Computed example of a mutant assay.
Amino acid sequence: MTEIKRHRITLHVDMDSFYSSVETRERPELKGLPVVVGSDPKEGSGRGVVSTCSYEAREFGIHSGMPISKAYKLCPDAAYLPVNMKLYKETSRQIMQLMRIFPDRFQQVSVDEAYLDIGDGIEDYESATLLAEKIKDEVFRKHGLTCSIGVAPNKVIAKIASDFNKPNGLTVVRPAEVEDFLFPLPISKIPGIGKKTQPILKEMGMETVGQLATADVQLLIARFGKFGLVMHQLANGVDRREVKEREEVKSISTEDTFDRDISEPDMIRKNILQLCENVHKPLIKKRFRFRTVTIKVRYGDFRTYTRAKTVSAATTEMQTIKKVSLELMEEFIGTGEFRLLGVGVTKLEKIDERQTSLSDFLDSD
């Protein structure tokens, strides 16, 4: 196994079932009950998906990303609540602000998780464990929410550790314990190894992290390219990424799930144009230009496709978003019924205050 030379200690903090936990905090009568956050199931005919659910709901087989109609069939008596993103973001902001005071370096990676590099001041795992316990206590005392924390030599091990004993868990993996901790785990625990990669690795005789870690790296590279080397390193607990503040926004997107599948060309185009306007507003508000427009389509049977096109020069113009989105959509019009459409922009560039163009104002109405 490759030696882990990094001496700094990394924490990964992951809020437990964040959306549903915030809802339960706001509505104490829901405590101990199955709670599902997502679209209204409409007695089993809802069109949305589960955003998150409480651990009580998970006991019924419900999970994030599941169609809300399926969740309803599994547990019709659960409390089904709409997504209240404003509440979750504000709660997240407060929690992240609290956690920023503890580390030398801090990196928020989503609304409910962050990495903390506690620096050269704390080099022993006993002190790091006490710090993790303090963070957990402070988050619960001030916000009434629990979190799970992994304490480890680097980011990948800390992330796997934070998920090891959920909810309200604390898992510490010292450098000498990395192999014993990682090797028995299924390969699905390695970030980036998803449902498409797992069957291929299984065919190659690799189902545990240990089997992946001790595999011939040249065979992995031959099959997966550079990702084969990355997988091999992560399986061995090697991760040289630093904890650093997240860079600027990389994409802005929005999508809409319909109450009924739609196939009428005029209705499809109308919805695409509305989505373009919904994307353009935050683009201007956050002062970005874009170079690439993307669309997302999901058929009634859940087949999902994306398409993208890059324009010649970065722009803020809404008409460009609309024009390109409609062009990309033409491939799909007439091919079936759609339950979801989405539009996004990527390859963003921050606008210098001195470079404001007239189109910024014309398109922002």
Rank of each mutant, 00 (worst) to 15 (best):
V243I: 08
R307G: 10
G65I: 06
D266T: 13
R303I: 11
T24V: 12
V279T: 01
K70S: 15
I333D: 00
E90M: 14
E248G: 15
Q94H: 10
R8K: 13
E179A: 10
I4T: 04
L340E: 09
L98K: 13
H232C: 13
P199C: 06
T304W: 05
L170D: 01
C147W: 10
R8F: 12
T315F: 02
R241H: 05
K347T: 05
V156I: 06
E43P: 08
K202Q: 12
T292L: 00
G300Q: 03
H63S: 12
A132V: 01
Q108H: 13
R8I: 14
K159N: 03
L220F: 09
E59T: 12
T24E: 09
M318K: 15
L212K: 10
K31N: 13
E207F: 10
P103E: 09
D256C: 12
R6K: 10
I149D: 02
I101W: 15
K286R: 15
K134V: 05
K73S: 11
V111Q: 10
G44A: 12
Q355V: 10
D363H: 03
F361Q: 11
A235Y: 01
K159I: 00
N154S: 01
V343P: 07
T257H: 08
E255S: 07
G225A: 09
F288Y: 03
P199N: 08
H7D: 14
F102T: 14
V230Y: 14
H63V: 11
I284P: 03
R174C: 07
V297K: 07
E317M: 10
F60P: 03
M99T: 10
N84T: 11
F102K: 14
P199H: 06
E242N: 09
E29P: 05
P265Q: 00
K350E: 04
K31A: 15
L33C: 15
Y305L: 14
S64R: 07
K159Y: 08
G205T: 02
F60Q: 02
T257F: 05
K270N: 13
Q198I: 08
K286T: 15
G300R: 00
K347P: 05
K142E: 15
T129G: 03
T208P: 01
D117P: 05
L145M: 09
K142T: 11
T129E: 02
P191E: 12
S51Q: 04
Y19K: 03
A176Q: 14
N165C: 15
I252W: 00
I262A: 13
T306V: 10
M329Y: 08
Q233F: 10
F302R: 06
A132H: 01
P82D: 04
E23W: 06
K281C: 07
K31G: 15
L326W: 12
E242T: 05
Q319M: 13
V109S: 15
Y19M: 04
S325M: 08
I149T: 02
L74H: 11
D117S: 04
E203F: 11
M1L: 08
F60H: 04
E56C: 03
S364P: 07
L182Y: 14
I157P: 00
E29K: 07
T91G: 02
K270S: 12
L182G: 14
V243D: 02
P67N: 05
M96H: 05
